[in-house]
């Protein structure tokens, strides 16, 4: 090995990277900084061999690598202790294998969630993850940051959906854990280890997930109250009931104009989601079952003595992002 490319200059580093990534290397722009750390070069590998080659070079030269997907969660974790190469995985954007009949899909790290969901929706299926910023978030980033959204309540988080992973180790070795079948206990669970590891163990090349059918209908009920306590209490009672909610979020606070809100999403057949008739009366039953001081008088839309009122409200805009959802 000759002179260290790092010691030489940023230009020398980019020259060394160029052939490894088909010339897709550039100087870092302001927007490429990660928590204030500005790398010397941005490399955009187009396949797993190029990812491995960049990592092997960095390993030999003692260079720090920052893997990046959609860049939506760069604030998570500690700021990196330096960074020489920003590894932009945006070109690894393929659906590797989609088996609709088996409800499984393998997608490359740089594929955007919205594009994957669009491909799956053609078969009436979806990856049951609804993290923030789906237009920008990528599969690799979602796995690395363990990003999930409100519907984790029903479907679980990344660790519950991921069944296989292919990674490049920091020394450039490609390794695989899990598989492409939904049930598999052979070997240590590498997919879970890489979930939420924030890229500290290696670079995710692709990941395999189990899928779910898109529910025929989806409805969200929003309730407001002057303070959060009764909404939190109601949350516990919904969870403890036989109602199957897909998501329950409490948001807003006493300072916002509408006050604290509780959004509850139900999914399933259209008929069962007739909320005004069937479900509302069932809700009253749940409310009446409460053991709190004002449980007996608590009903939706009315207030008892010392019991803050709970009334219907409007859902927040973020809740309409799910496939085929129709919020009420």
């Amino acid at each position: 090995m000759g002179v260290s490319v790092r010691a030489a200059s940023p230009e020398a580093l980019r020259d060394a990277l160029g052939p490894l990534v088909g010339g897709r290397v550039r100087a870092a722009a302001e927007g490429d900084s990660v928590a204030g750390v500005r790398p010397a070069a941005v490399a955009e590998p187009g396949d797993e061999a190029a990812v491995a080659a960049v990592l092997a070079l960095a390993d030999r030269e003692g260079l720090k690598v920052l893997p990046r997907g959609g860049g939506t969660q760069l604030g998570l974790g500690h700021p990196p202790a330096g960074g020489d190469i920003l590894l932009d995985l945006g070109r690894l954007g393929a659906v590797v294998e989609y088996a609709p009949g088996d409800l499984t899909v393998t997608a490359q790290a740089g594929l955007r969630l919205t594009d994957l969901q669009a491909a799956l929706a053609k078969e009436g299926q979806w990856l049951a993850l609804d993290p923030a910023l789906p237009l920008a978030a990528t599969i690799g980033g979602i796995v690395a940051t363990n990003a999930s959204g409100p519907r984790r309540l029903r479907y679980g988080g990344v660790r519950d959906q991921i069944i296989g992973v292919r990674v490049a180790r920091p020394d450039g070795t490609i390794a695989r854990g899990g598989g492409k079948v939904v049930k598999n206990v052979a070997g240590f669970d590498l997919p879970k280890l890489f979930t939420g590891a924030l890229g500290t163990l290696g670079v995710i090349i692709d990941a395999t997930f189990r899928l779910y059918p898109i529910p025929a209908a989806s409805r969200t009920v929003v309730l407001t109250a002057p303070e959060p306590a009764p909404l939190c209490d109601l949350t516990l009672r919904i969870i403890g009931s036989t109602l199957i909610a897909s998501a329950i979020d409490v948001y807003g606070d006493t300072t916002s104009s509408e006050g604290p809100r509780l959004a509850v999403r139900f999914e399933g057949r259209r008929r069962r989601l007739r909320i005004r008739r069937g479900a509302w009366s069932r809700w009253r039953v749940i409310l009446a079952q409460g053991r709190g001081p004002c449980a007996a008088k608590r009903r939706i839309g009315s207030s008892g003595a010392g019991c803050p009122s709970i009334r219907p409200g409007r859902p927040s805009p973020g809740w309409s992002a799910a496939p085929r959802s129709s919020c009420c």
Partner: peptide, 27 residues
């Protein structure tokens, strides 16, 4: 896969290389 729920244990360790590469198992 060589096992869905019973585990590899003693019985199936010899079949791990059918499913995983040397690099996989080393990792």
């Amino acid at each position: 896969s060589i096992t869905g729920e019973h585990g590899v244990g003693m019985e199936k360790r010899g079949y791990m290389p059918v499913m995983f590469s040397e690099a996989d198992m080393e990792t």
